[in-house]
Structure formats: C-alpha cells, structure tokens
Amino acid sequence: MQNRGAFAATLLTTLLFSGIAQAEYSAGDELKVLQGFKAGGGSDALAQLTQPFLRESLGVEFVNEYLPGATGGIAWTRLAKQAPNDGSVISITNTPMLMTNYLMNDAINYSIDELTPIANVVTDPGVIVVPKESPYQTVEDFFAAAEERPGQITVGNSGVGGDDFFSTIMIEKATGLSFQKVPFQGDGPSATAALGGKIDASFNNLGNVYGHIRSGDLRPLAVFTRERLEVLPDVPTLVEKDIDVVAGSSRGYSAPAGIPDQARQELIAAFEALKDDEEFQQTAQERAMNLDILTGDAYAQMMQDMEEQFAEIWDEIKDEVNE
C-alpha cells in the first residue's frame, strides 16, 4: 500500500517536474530513501519538501521506502547494517532519536559510526509553553515556582528518548531545579494536555504549537535556540538567561558508512545548493519548516556532540528511569 503511495508520489513529482532529468549523480539514477516512520509523518514531510528540488539538481529518481517501527530503529539498523554502501541508499535521520535509540536500548546496536552523515535540513526548535490561564508570565516565574516546589511542577514531553525529554533534563542539570516529567505519546498529546491545563507546562517543539501560540491559547516562555526567533521576537532564549541549553528536533539525510567519496561530495553539494535556492526557502517557509542546513562534517560533528551529551545524561539517569 505505502509502496503504491510512494509510487503515486513519484509519478506525481514526475508529472509536476517533467523536465528531462540529467543523470549527474555518479552512483546511479535511482536513489532509495529509507524512512523510519509511516507515510504522511514528519519525515515524509521533509521528503516531500526536499526531494523535488534534489531530483532536479542530482538528476535522480527518489524511491521512498517506509520501514516504520522501534521509533525509526528498524530503518536505521537496515541502513547501517544491510544497505549497500555504493551511494544508492540513504535514509532520513532524525536527531536525537537516531542516537537515543541505541543509547537507551541494548537490543538496538547500530551506531552513528556506521553512517555517513550527509546533511541536516530542518530543526524544529524546543520551546516551553504554558496554558493561557497559567500564573507563569515569564520563564523566571516558572523557574521560581519550580524552586519553591521542587519535583511538583508537572512538565509534559513527547516521550522518553525524545528531544523534549532530554532538554528537560539538560535544564534541570543547568539550573539545579527538578520537575515532575510526564511523558506523552508525541508532541501533539503533550501540547493538548497543556491546552487543557492538565499539566503546568509542556516542553514542545515550535512547529507543533505555533498555531496555539498565535491564537493565544498557549504562552511561550522560552525557546531553546542560540538567537531569538524571527517569528517570536519577544520570547527570550534560555541562553540569554545564562542557561546553556540549545535543543530541538532535527531531520536530515545520512548514508551508510564507506560510500564512494565522489557520491558523498555530490550529495553534499546538492544540499549546499539548497541554501541559496530561494524557491526552496520559500516552500519551506510556507510549510512552516525551520531550515537549519548543516552538511558533511558539520552534520557529523553535530551528531557526535549530541551522542556524547546524551550518553552522559542517560548514564546518569537510566537507573532512576528504570527504577
């Protein structure tokens, strides 16, 4: 079924961009993309955003293969362990899930060393939101309340192992505060619980709650970025408050380790070109996707830093989480 869906999508993109594709990519004229989540999800949205543009510049046909399960673990295991490393197979890699998967579960045994990171494309920055009736007007109010009642302020996250879960812990470590963490099955339910006042705050991602912020139903207290965001100029970053936490949920592309250097360079160049593609920028903006293009070694560095950070955090807290 989903194969047929992918086929229909390919057919449609073929119809939409019916210019004759030139075979420029050295590793063949077909590029298989392993997706670790179901069709129609966030990873698929990234595929629909970038692949029509890459199809033009690389001159390849994209074939999406959906292998959902184990929060992406099945697709990434396949990529690292079984996929041919000739440059014909790549995968959409979501961080921090990509690393937390194997850090947290012994049964998942791929690692980022078995991958060739190509490019990060989007990052949905983390944000603290509270219901509009909440007594906390600023992030200072919120932290003060947590100081007064340690471990009693309830904070929703998208699930153990997700970016919000880890950013909560990072904030706890940086401030010495402690929150009551309540995991939900994804960002949506976590935001809903905050909307209904069932939890004191939700640590979420901007893309999921922006509509509620704009309508005034949720109040953003702080964003987890280096600089303030253009769309939320009045919302402070945690960095401004001397809390060095920058976090978000990112999606990009990676290939198996050891692909031909030429193929790697060509892929990286194609993503680099997206940085200057105005049409691409505009499409991304229309779809409310926050571009954060980091290619090649920079993406590899980003993954390594995250892995190090999360391994350390998980080492500290795993006994507590597993009781």
Binding site: P68, G69, A70, T71, G73, I74, T77, M104, N105, A107, I108, G159, V160, G161, P183, Q185, V321, N322, E323
Partner: peptide, 20 residues
C-alpha cells in the same frame, strides 16, 4: 513493546520488530 513512560522494552525477546 517499549514501556511508554520508561522506554524499557517488555516481552520483546530482543527482537527489534516488537519494540513498537
């Protein structure tokens, strides 16, 4: 599958296909 609160895999017998 994985415990939704702790992330611990339960009754999966180490089989990654049963994690979800």
């Amino acid at each position: 599958g994985m415990d939704l609160i702790t992330g611990t895999p339960r009754m999966t017998f180490g089989n990654i296909n049963l994690f979800s």
